[in-house]
Write a protein that binds this DNA or RNA. Structure first.
Lengths: 399, 399
DNA sequence: GCAATATGTTTGATGGTCGAACTTAAGACG
DNA sequence: CGTCTTAAGTTCGACCATCAAACATATTGC
């Protein structure tokens, strides 16, 4: 990615740095180094990578080990010289990631290595905010009860709607919620930790950008499509999720595919959601809503005409809508998530080809399309990752 | 703006910080403080604002004054106590901002205060890359000859096209250029300074985000439309310009307004550029291309039917195209630049109202539309600002 | 003229990192 | 088996930027 013209310097950077911050930042750099590494590094490896002295690296790492933010593990003999003590992200540090979906709630604990330590899903009978949030808090407590002494460092919640800075869910069309204080409802569970609430699309995108806490994914600039009942989008540049002004980065579902298309609840016509949303695809393919993700591709391959039509509809609508997006934001990589992550490779190829034809810059940087790697609870994982981000950013607070 | 879910920490932050960096960063923080301030601050003001001691602030500021990065000025007596020595960004530090347009080249020198010190414009007879770049270098040298001992700290170039990391202009449709090494051509002029090449739309957006170097504008999150012969767009979040993968953040001009509209050179149909680009508006309004910006509004007010039609066309096309953009990126503020900056207020209001009707989130955060503040050489100013950014980011290199 | 007030300056103390020497634990080789 | 080589981790004094607090300076107000 090209440098944006100059980096305005009136950001958080314009605060004085003191010696304590220096130590803080070096601790953070070390944790980042351990998380980023593909094979567990030693103190000496970190020192050379970060160009600090072994002395400093070792002293700081000792503190991190004492705080269990990183673990020392045996490393297989690698060559001559004194064998190194390899370092891995601490498995004793976890965050709780929660997610509210239209008909279920999810709660999981993820450790600094990105391993899902505890995982729970509970269907919700009613969509009443109070009962849903009660169920969510109950699952969260169940998760915490199964942690066997691991240290919880944060709580994140993924919600399908527009969110305020202070964790209120302003509007969730598919839940029918208006102005629900999600952070407030979960604060009793979180205790002194801040409850980090964000849009599920952003959370899922975050997992694609960073498959494990602090470890960058293979692409650092892409548009992420999270498809479920609603269709959302997030933009990732330089490995960072760009959230819009209300954390609903992309109302991608309401990009116009065809002005003369079917009416949408949003008041417009021919919105993307009416072509690739779960409801729409269930109707066209003839499948049950829960079977769309797994069934559409195989059925089409077996010759099911309705599923073939559904795939063609997805291909057409996505290539039209994403062409606009790619042209507008100048990012030519696309990751498809949710039930679109299970589209057959041939469909992905078709989408890519049609995008190439519609996108201006494709001659210079061809469009790339791939399926999301996260599981169907990516948003909950992302919520946990976000909460773990505090440890990566300021490990000093935990030593 | 809502925090994006967690900030991935594998960025530039994962480098060890040494004591020298500490000093560097504090120097940068002080310069930023001086630039950001609305009224010239004293050493003591800066110390309290940045929460460092007066001792440190004074010591570092002394170095900055010696290097002429900041100037000491008399401050009018404000109250009792020892009178302060006020500080302003140094007027002796300038950067040269260059711009290539379809039929002219621009060169200006801008100092750290944001004042344009020297300004030159030269029409170009041919569009041959070599002759245009020669003319540009000539104007740049003219500018430098008039600087009277001011110190040049960088060179920036705004170009109407897609740019690579190393300053090559891959493609500029309206110039008919392909793969021209702009940075290389200007390197002899720039000497040891890096030649910073970026898209004109991004450069112009930068000026809106930061009207003077280091001073944040009134909006920090907006979509910027730069309209000329081509129509470009840039996205600014958190005061930073988000450049796409090839620095052509937004090919906004090729967002589809109406699939059944007129054919566009890009191969598609009904592109925004065909409705609000200079050529299109000149044709509809019956005005000369150079008179569109200044003439369209007044003529329409006087009852010129063709100009009224043109304004209506602009209103319609912009509200359709921008609705997509606003929905996609979740940023609901729009700044119109280029010849769209002179649209009459009534037209801006009309665009805003139609956008509100089309944008989902407008109930929560209404869409705001305003005209750009920059002059018609905003891109050149932005190029200079970008180059000055080096001084703001690492003043230590200049002391 | 003197108290009050606030800016700027000097001084020694503090704390985190650097550099270099030292210790430790393995493999390599005769 | 013993010695050499290599590389990881450790110790210790030096350095340097900041801090804290006292001091010097310049103006207002009485």
């Amino acid at each position: 990615m090209v440098d944006a013209p100059g980096t305005p310097w009136h950001g958080p950077a314009s605060v004085a740095v003191r010696q304590a911050n220096l130590r803080e930042r070096n601790l953070a750099a070390l944790v980042a180094g351990v998380c980023r590494a593909t094979s567990p590094p030693s103190r000496a490896d970190l020192a050379t990578e970060l160009s600090m002295t072994r002395a400093t690296a070792a002293r700081l790492v000792d503190e991190l080990v004492a705080a269990k933010v990183v673990d020392e593990v045996e490393r297989e003999r690698t060559g001559r010289g004194r064998p190194a003590l390899a370092l891995r992200p601490g498995s004793g540090i976890v965050a709780v990631g929660l997610a509210i979906e239209t008909d279920r709630v999810l709660a999981r604990a993820v450790d600094l290595r990105g391993d899902v330590v505890v995982d729970r899903v509970a269907p919700t009978a009613s969509r009443d905010p109070e009962s849903v949030l009660d169920a969510l808090a109950r699952e969260a407590r169940e998760v915490r009860a199964r942690l066997r002494g691991r240290r919880v460092v944060g709580v994140g919640v993924a919600v399908p709607g527009i969110v305020t800075d202070d964790g209120r869910l302003l509007r969730a069309p598919n839940l029918g919620w208006n102005d629900v204080d999600v952070a407030g409802a979960l604060q009793p569970f979180a205790g002194r930790h801040r409850v980090l609430v964000a849009n599920e699309a952003d959370m899922a995108a975050f997992v694609e950008a960073e498959p494990a806490p602090g470890r960058p994914g293979d692409w650092s600039d892409f548009v992420h499509v999270s498809a479920a009942v609603g269709v959302g989008g997030s933009i990732v540049t330089g490995g960072r999720v760009v959230a819009g002004e209300h954390g609903a980065a992309g109302e991608l579902g309401h990009v116009c595919v065809d002005p003369s298309g079917p009416a949408c609840a949003c008041g417009s016509t021919g919105c993307l959601e009416r072509y690739v949303g779960l409801e729409a695809l269930a109707a066209v393919s003839g499948l049950d809503r829960d079977d769309v993700a797994a069934g559409m591709g195989p059925r089409a391959a077996e010759g099911d005409v309705r599923c073939q039509v559904a795939l063609e509809q997805v291909t057409h609508a996505l290539s039209v809508a994403l062409a606009s997006v790619v042209n507008v934001v100048g990012i030519s990589s696309v990751v498809l998530g949710g039930h679109l992550a299970t589209l057959p490779p041939a469909t992905l190829d078709a989408i890519q080809q049609r995008l190439d034809a519609r996108v201006l810059g494709s001659r210079w940087t061809p469009v790339r399309v791939r399926a999301a790697r996260g599981d169907d609870a990516a948003a909950a994982t992302g919520a946990a990752h976000s909460a773990l981000g505090d440890v990566l950013a300021r490990p000093a607070a935990w030593v």
